[in-house]
Design a binder for these strands. Structure first.
Lengths: 203, 203
DNA sequence: TACCGGATAGAGCGCTCGCTCTAGAGCATG
DNA sequence: CATGCTCTAGAGCGAGCGCTCTATCCGGTA
């Protein structure tokens, strides 16, 4: 039998994280790539270096609870990146374009596997798993608000900024999906340039 | 035992369509709502009023082949609608806005269940089922070309029209997903207005 | 030392999955 | 009627699903 410390040393990938965190991250990554239905709890626990017992200890709500937490993890992850990119330049148009390029390069680097962590999980479950849908809706809302604040800070009026921020997020999501399916950076790069043009038309 | 004719009379829903066509349409609708993995071949055959034997007779390639044909069906379906809407008005900006509003109303009318028929099927399978991914990529490409021709007809230059058409499709896809998750027409309506503004900025 | 609760471990439950296989129905030919 | 072909019919296969359950390990406390 392994001690806890020995066990942690064996799971090379994710460092000194706790079991619960490893499970959430693994679930998020797997569902991002395969969707909700195709990601089994046994696969998740194995790749996380945990066991089924641990998984159900930390997530008594089962796969559904785990998926909701995985979405919230992806939400925070992308919100951090988006926030950083928006802060790195003063003009919102350039920042959004940078963001699209970064998404394109990241997607390409993952061999077109890692699309939006929320989309793939949420789409298959949107109709009949309310917890998961709610978590996804909250993620989109948070991202919209980040863009909204940036646009407001650049002097765009409330109503226009709200609608524009919503469209920026929708376009990035759609373009990421298009890029993934087409296995090409071009849809995302085009979207970035067009969004920049659209934003600049308000100034 | 039922004769073929008697059997066709019993399947109320889809009229006098052949078995193969009923299976494709049912598969397309189910995968649109539930995704690829969550739609079982038994469920598809039952709801289509067919049997497993019939399904595997017409689709010896199994679920994968069926999914690819379902995507192509959804492709044609949406391409027809898109083509009609683009033809119904001279100005591309207004036509795209109309299209977004129509998508929003259709999505709402289906109780937020019927999103893009291609997206849900393709996303879960994009990584490891090449046939399905290819069919989805071809669908997006066809839709882009429809928009491209409309923009070209309105006098927009080649390079600009290509990038703009790509962004229009990406934005509509992303906004439809956002609307579905948020259970609100607003993301699609906002996207329609912003796309119209973007298109008009080229004239 | 003995004990306790958090965490780990995995065998096994009932069920459904995609798919195969054999049998037969219906219909156009001679 | 006999033959051959397309299509229908559904029982059943092995595998995997989400989840439950009992047994055990471990560090901290008394």
């Amino acid at each position: 039998m392994k001690t806890k410390a020995q066990h942690d040393e064996d799971t090379v990938e994710q460092g000194p994280l706790g079991t619960r965190e490893r499970i959430v991250r693994t679930a998020s990554r797997l569902m991002q790539r395969q969707g909700y239905e195709a990601s089994g709890v046994k696969q998740i626990s194995q790749e996380a270096g945990a066991t089924l017992g641990s998984l159900y200890h930390f997530f008594p709500g089962g796969k559904q609870q785990l998926a909701a937490e995985a979405i919230r993890h992806g939400d925070r992850e992308f919100a951090d990146i988006l926030g950083e990119m928006l802060d790195s330049r003063p003009d919102p148009a350039g920042a959004i374009d940078d963001c699209a390029v970064a998404l394109a390069e990241g997607l390409h680097a993952s061999a077109w596997l890692d699309g939006c962590p929320v989309t793939a999980t949420a789409l298959g479950a949107a109709g009949h798993l309310p917890d998961i849908q709610r978590a996804a809706a909250e993620a989109f809302q948070r991202w919209r608000e980040l863009v909204y604040e940036k646009l407001r800070g650049a002097g765009i009026a409330e109503d226009e900024a709200r609608e524009l921020a919503s469209t920026v997020i929708s376009t990035l999501e759609g373009a990421e999906m298009a890029a993934q399916v087409a296995r090409s950076e071009e849809p995302l790069r085009a979207a970035g340039r067009q969004l920049a043009r659209l934003i600049n038309s308000y100034r």
